[in-house]
């Protein structure tokens, strides 16, 4: 965990289809696999989910982040992955989280503001990346409610 920290922020289009229950089930599976795979790889981060969008922060050793990103990249549950920010980082934003989670199923005005991020991603990826990071720092909640 003392290795140099590399950080990657991306957003993507949610391709999970189904009822809200089915979607939550899928998200649970995603988080479970993150909780299983990330700690041994020294990776922490946060996942933001909303009806149309995923945004995720991955932080850890560059090789681990690359490997995990490659798996994520091939996942059919999302598409149009846009890397918003990537590079070495001074510190972890989510040191305590194998994968912190924020979702918009609960009313949350700041999460709603994540929707325009997808739109601005292409025109200004690094600004969008910063926006996602800030948003996640602000609203990260225990995933208890969804994992319960």
């Amino acid at each position: 965990m003392n290795d140099a920290i590399y950080k990657l922020v991306y957003c993507s289009r949610n391709q999970i289809r189904g009822t809200p229950e089915e979607i939550i089930r899928e998200i649970r599976i995603i988080l479970k696999s993150a909780h299983r795979n990330n700690p041994p790889a020294g990776v922490t981060g946060a996942l933001l989910f909303n009806e149309g969008l995923f945004a995720q922060v991955l932080e850890g050793p560059v090789d681990s982040v690359s490997r995990i990103f490659e798996t994520i990249q091939c996942d059919g549950r999302h598409s149009d992955v846009t890397v918003l920010q990537n590079g070495p980082a001074e510190h972890r934003d989510f040191p305590e989280w194998s994968m912190a989670f924020a979702a918009s199923s609960k009313p949350n005005p700041s999460l709603e503001s994540a929707i325009p991020i997808a739109g601005t991603a292409l025109s200004n990826p690094s600004a969008a990346g910063e926006q996602v990071l800030q948003l996640l720092r602000d609203v990260v909640v225990q995933e208890d409610w969804i994992m319960a």
């Binding site: 990657l8 560059v62 982040v65 690359s66 490659e70 091939c74 846009t82 890397v83 990537n86 590079g87």
Partner: peptide, 14 residues
């Protein structure tokens, strides 16, 4: 075609 055109992360570079 879709999979292969997705972004790659190699040695920290996109």
């Amino acid at each position: 075609v879709d999979l292969l055109q997705r972004t790659y992360l190699i040695g920290g570079q996109v």
